[in-house]
Structure formats: C-alpha cells, structure tokens
Amino acid sequence: MLKVKGIDVFYGDLQVLWEVSFHIREGEIVVLLGANGAGKSTTIRTISSMLSPARGSIEFEGRRIDHLPPHLIINEGIVHVPEGRRLFPEMTVEENLIMGSLAPEAKFKRAETLEYVYGLFPRLKERRKQLAGTLSGGEQQMAAIGRGLMSLPKLMMFDEPSLGLAPILVQDVFHLVKEINDSGVTILLSEQNVIQTLGMCDRAYVLENGRIVLEGTGEELLNNDQVKEAFLGI
C-alpha cells in the first residue's frame, strides 16, 4: 500500500534520514520505534509531504506522492494525527471534527462519519460545544483521532499518540488504534512505548540516528537481544 524507498531528508544542511526504506501492506499495523531524535516524526512528516525528500520516493497505492503539496495528501486517503494533538483550541470539539472532513468525499458523508465518531467517543458527543482547548489531555487525543477519522482515511499515521497521557489512557489509546484497524484502516504508528506497541503490531521497524537498523514482526523484535538491551534494559 505504502512504499517508502530510500529517502534522504534534510533540515537545512542537517541530514536526519538516511536511505530510509520500508513498506506497509493493506490492513497492517506497522510501528516505527526509536529514541528521541531517531527520525520517527520526520518520517511521518515526510509522508505527509510537510518535508520533501532530497532523494528517494514515496508511493501510495502505486502513485508517487512525495511531490504533492501537503494539503492534497489527505485526498489520497492518508491522514496524519500529529504529535501533541494539534487541535484548533478556540474552535469547539464539533468544529474541530468538521475541519477533518473537508475533502469532497469525506464532506459528502460528513453527518454519517460524525455519528460514527461520536459512537466511538461518547465523551466527545457530551462535549461537542466545548472549546477544544479546554478538554483534558486524553479527551484532546480522542478529538484528534476523531478528527483524523473524519477524513475517511485508508492509512492513518499516529505520531506518538501516547505522549503525555496517563498509563491507563495509553492503554485506551492503543485499544482504540486496534479497533480502528479492525474496521479496515491501515495504521502507521510511531512510538516509544516498546512493549505495548510490539505486542499489538504486525510488523515494526527500528530507527536509530535516522537509519532503519532492524525490522521484523512484533514478536521477533520483542525477543531480539538488541531491542531488549536498547529499549527494555534487560
């Protein structure tokens, strides 16, 4: 479904991704693991076209998307739930959700999708008229995920959805990701929460200093000595 082939990405003169290649098959949950600064967010931002690769290509369903302007990526069926939620704080919850469905097809099914999202998050329905900036961290994450779903994505990319959430909420978020995946949406997840994510994903890639150093199924990586040492400290 998504093929990233040998991309090099720079911030100015500083190279942060080195020949990163990976792929995602339809219906999978794929995780990008790595420490801070390893390049997880950069990879996701590059797929969203907010950064463009100096070399290499990105294909989605057989079409190259690496030179599309960022606002057109969503029309391809890819949505990015950014790190730190990035809601529009002075708009209401419902307005935020509606902002997620601007593409023609999503707009057509807006009322229906809104009901679906409210079904998934009854909490958001209760607070639909409230300003998004006044929600708690967990509720904001729900709203951000809901906003992403409003575009009826084929591929949903989550950038550290557990960031800054209480452990119990982290559990909820991962359950939710699984649930969304079961409904037929392919998932790309960047995370630092190694054990939980490896337990639920199909495959994972480990990034280190902007390079992919390991790949495998979740189970393989859980049992990998290098991963154990680097991330789990055992």
Binding site: P69, H71, I73, I74, R86, L87, F88, M91, L102, R147
Partner: peptide
C-alpha cells in the same frame, strides 16, 4: 472564516486537514 481561524490556530494542522493554507 473557518479556514482562516484554523490557519491562525495551527497552520500545520490546517494543512494536514487538507486546507491549502
């Protein structure tokens, strides 16, 4: 109007929502 406000609030997020900011 909504597009303008969303750009003010968070330009990157607006871009991610498919608005040609």
């Amino acid at each position: 109007g909504y597009y303008f406000v969303s750009i003010r609030e968070d330009q990157d997020a607006a871009e991610s929502m498919g608005i040609n900011t």
